[in-house]
Simulated scan of single mutants.
Amino acid sequence: PSSIGNAPNLWKLQLSGCTSLVELPSSFGNLHTSVTHLDLNDCSSLKSFPEIFTNINIKYLGLAGTSIEEVPSSIMPWSSLEKLHMSYSENLKEFPYVLDSITDLHLRDTEIQEISPWVKRCSRLSHFVIKNMQKLVSVSELPDSLEFLDAEGCESLERLDCSFSNPDVRLNFGKCFKLNQEARNLIIQTPAYKHVVLPGGEVPAYFTFRSSGKSVTVKLNEKPPLPTSTKFRACIVLATESQFGEEIGLECRITSQGED
């Protein structure tokens, strides 16, 4: 309703999924101090964001799944903006101030075969979702800030023309059965990542210690005492389909000179 601009204490406005929403009422401009969270995700009929909306306290703006391709310059002075969710659009490359603000980018165009190089310029991008892009063949360079790449269901994905340097990055390539060996080696041998999901039916040769049971014994080359910090990688082959994000428990016990 147009009267929503008269709600001075409103701090969170969630309109996600309002597919009939075409435009925001002009009274939204009155919410210039109270609202910090504005969620318009999946408002598929929304094509523009009002220039008059000059809120400087918004921390979260969700526009993924809308028809908005050109973000107005009115968001430039939003110094409090921490998270900007957008849908992938080639038009975004014309708005460098937007690229510096995007933290979450969702690609939903099923016709895209390659990721545009401008994505690399999204210096704050942490989450990049390209799920079920069935014609996507390659992924180009990505920003170092990336923490999560979800490419599950990209059935045509073959190449990764990128690298992953963030030690906390999480990668999901579930159901990417055409991913070539070079790309798989890049992922497995990358010195830094938190966890990865890859399609396959066997443990890669990179993992030399193997077991088909509930545990594996590894004989370390280091002489005792062991260092206080020991890093290792483990690969688990799941026989049943598991949703990415489910908790998988892994217990590690290191024994030195007969003591845990």
Rank of each mutant, 00 (worst) to 15 (best):
P1A: 12
S2K: 12
S2Y: 10
I4W: 11
P8Y: 10
P8A: 09
L10K: 08
W11A: 09
W11F: 06
L13R: 08
Q14G: 10
L15R: 11
C18W: 09
S20E: 12
V22Q: 15
E23Y: 12
L24A: 09
S27Y: 04
F28M: 15
N30W: 01
V35M: 02
V35L: 08
V35P: 08
H37F: 12
L38I: 08
L38V: 06
D39G: 11
L40W: 12
L46G: 13
F49Q: 14
E51L: 14
I52V: 15
N55E: 13
G62K: 09
L63W: 03
A64R: 12
A64E: 15
G65V: 11
T66R: 04
S67V: 10
I68W: 12
M76N: 13
P77M: 13
S79H: 15
S80R: 14
E82N: 09
M86S: 11
S87D: 09
Y88G: 06
S89H: 15
E90S: 14
E90L: 13
Y97I: 05
V98K: 10
L99G: 07
L99A: 08
I102W: 12
D104F: 10
R108Y: 10
R108G: 13
T110D: 08
I112F: 02
Q113F: 01
I115R: 06
S116R: 09
K120V: 14
R121K: 15
C122W: 14
L125C: 05
V129H: 11
V129L: 07
I130Y: 08
I130G: 06
K131C: 05
M133H: 07
Q134K: 11
Q134R: 06
V139Y: 07
V139C: 04
S140C: 13
S140P: 01
E141P: 06
P143T: 07
F148V: 12
F148K: 11
L149H: 02
L149N: 02
D150P: 03
A151V: 01
E152Y: 01
E155A: 06
L157P: 02
L157E: 02
E158T: 04
R159G: 00
D161F: 08
S163G: 10
F164P: 05
V169T: 07
R170N: 06
L171F: 04
L171H: 00
K175G: 09
L179P: 03
N180L: 01
N180Q: 01
Q181V: 04
R184W: 01
I187D: 05
P191M: 03
P191K: 00
A192T: 05
V196H: 00
V197C: 10
P199Y: 07
G200D: 01
G200E: 03
E202D: 04
P204W: 00
P204I: 01
A205W: 07
T208E: 02
S211K: 00
S211W: 02
S211V: 02
K214R: 13
K214P: 10
V216L: 06
K219Q: 14
L226P: 00
K231R: 06
K231P: 00
A234D: 00
C235I: 00
C235K: 00
I236Q: 02
V237H: 09
E241H: 07
E241N: 10
S242G: 05
Q243P: 05
F244T: 07
E246I: 03
L250M: 10
L250G: 09
E251F: 11
C252N: 02
T255A: 10
Q257A: 12
Q257V: 09
